[in-house]
Design a protein around this nucleic acid. Structure first.
Lengths: 337, 337
DNA sequence: ACTCTTCGCGGAAACGTTTCGACGTATCGA
DNA sequence: TCGATACGTCGAAACGTTTCCGCGAAGAGT
């Protein structure tokens, strides 16, 4: 039932090898023969058997992407990565195979050792990620979205979360704020040592202390109760708080909501700056100033690097995207008191 | 470099076919031989070449999943489907290949005609979905999450959105509400004829009219401005509105926020019932009564059906999950006026 | 007119599995 | 004791591609 290469060859009156060469372009083929072959391919609806093909070529045109452990499906940021990679892959004729990080290291080895994929993209990198040694031992290329402690030779792309955090502090400090707090990712993100959460927090705290300000921060669950609790805690740490750095895209709407409940006007009584994908900040009320998380760019870049490695061209081992501030209405100078 | 089956055979002192039979269990093998072979497999770290394998078996143990058109990565519901399918697949040794619906019908044909996948799961089904005829013509099984108009022989699983909508109406009506409005999915979801949006709305509206109530509804963008506008519009349609059915999980927090801004207490001044994944309703303030969207169950079920079809066992062509109401604090009797 | 290159193509051997058929050797029933 | 069965294993032929090698014909150079 499935149409094979020989069927095409027969119909076009040529040998199988000729059809193959038409397909791959690895040899000059006369215009006339090419026309006949392509016509036959179209009429028969021939598609080369991917498995059979992969056994002679050394590639499958499939890459694997390892999803984060937590399958809550909540975090939209990670989905944006997936979509970005998916689109980039599609554009180059690659398919995307999804793995979950839960089955850990085993599945990564499985899919590459069974020659199912040409390479792997891993996200949600922890600072001391157990997958890193595995990836290094792989005989297929891998690229990380995120930066582990011992990156060394593993090519990775990342956003400069430390600089992003520092940039938020700088912005608020320049506006005149002297009491700045940070509402950060949920606690479990820190306990599993997610690089982005740690580096963003440390970037904020370090910049705060360097400027002689009190380093105030708290993790928060992305729901109203969690946010309310976190904000209360922040005020407990520093009652004079006049500015908030929010790196927790899911909690952001609840933060604004809660501040309103507390009677704190934004930005009058409380300035807010977020680190999050831009589209999640700009449609809130008020529109929130943010340091945009370049998820699409990172995903695209990761795939580009991977495909580079697959085709054997050298790639920069480390790429750090610089933060950029979008000024909106949620941050302003503190009210004189 | 990659270790092949013959390497294992050599090491174990048996023929390649014996190794293959150990792997597949298709023939009795003596305990001793099996032990030696398995030992060799483990020591050499042998993994059968998936491509080579797929050319003789007729299967790949990979299924494709077609993502919705809109790649905004916002809608968490769809991600829950993906995760559910992903987990179910993993549990049965299947891998998941991701396709986007954007490249439309072509890519579906590509991956199945090139024998990359054993079957396809398609979500975000429109009532008159152009992919349906394609799936029907496929020589591999497909299952839909959602119900097209002409389902006929295509096996599909779905949630009874009409019943869910009716159930919301019934609940609020029973509580004593006589002015009930619906805040529905964004307008473009309707324009692209997404089955779930249409059926939920129609379920609500039909039940309202059957009970002699005014059918009030509005689509809403899932951001504060969109929600504010929608709520205003609803009050314009029926100033006496005392209850709201929200089928728009992303807008739900903004709805509660907006009602608070308007000085309407929930549930005192306004009862709210949502149709959404349960975890997105229960952590809000107040916790929202909902008709839970069984995303995980649907995803799991879809994969189960697909694997059934692949292995050749008959499957129920249509499965409709019944709605179930979770009573929480967001809905109560209307205040006497 | 004759070699030399180039061009266009076909034949056949891979690639790494699975599986069909066949071949001993025990085991069993009679 | 003898055929028939069952068991355990092997050899070889597939599966659908790609690619190496080579061959004839056409064109170029002398």
């Amino acid at each position: 039932m499935p149409v094979r290469l020989v069927d095409v060859a027969r119909r076009a009156g040529v040998s199988p090898s000729t059809v193959s060469y038409v397909l791959s372009g690895n040899r000059p083929i006369s215009a006339e023969t090419r026309r006949r072959v392509e016509e036959s391919i179209a009429e028969l609806g021939f598609r080369p058997h991917a498995g059979a093909r992969s056994i002679r070529r050394q590639s499958t045109n499939v890459v694997a992407m390892v999803l984060p452990m937590l399958a809550d499906g909540q975090s939209s940021v990670q989905m944006q990565f997936v979509f970005a990679v998916l689109h980039a892959a599609r554009a180059q004729g690659f398919n995307l195979l999804l793995l979950t990080a839960e089955d850990g290291v085993a599945e990564i080895n499985n899919v590459v050792n069974s020659a199912m994929v040409d390479g792997v993209i891993v996200m949600e990198i922890q600072v001391n990620d157990p997958r890193v040694p595995v990836l290094r031992a792989l005989d297929r290329p891998a690229v990380l979205i995120g930066t582990p402690d011992d990156a060394e030779d593993l090519v990775h792309v990342d956003f400069d979360f430390a600089a992003a955090g520092a940039m938020c502090v700088q912005h608020l400090h320049d506006l005149g704020h002297r009491h700045i707090g940070m509402l950060a990712q949920p606690a479990d993100t820190f306990t599993r040592q997610a690089g982005f959460a740690l580096r963003a927090r440390d970037g904020v705290l370090q910049e705060l202390t360097e400027r002689g300000l009190k380093p105030t921060w708290i993790p928060a669950q992305p729901n109203p109760a969690g946010v309310a609790e976190a904000i209360e805690e922040l005020f407990g740490q520093d009652p004079e708080l006049s500015a908030l750095i929010v790196y927790n895209e899911l909690a952001l709407p609840f933060v604004l909501d809660r501040l309103r409940q507390l009677g704190r006007r934004v930005p009058g009584d409380m300035s807010v700056v977020a680190i999050c994908p831009d589209d999640q900040a700009q449609h809130l009320v008020p529109a929130v100033s943010d340091v945009a998380l370049p998820t699409t760019e990172l995903g695209r870049l990761a795939f580009e690097r991977l495909v580079g490695l697959i085709t054997g061209t050298d790639q920069p081992v480390s790429t750090l995207l610089e933060p950029h501030l979008n000024r909106r209405g949620s941050a302003g100078p503190p009210l004189r008191r």
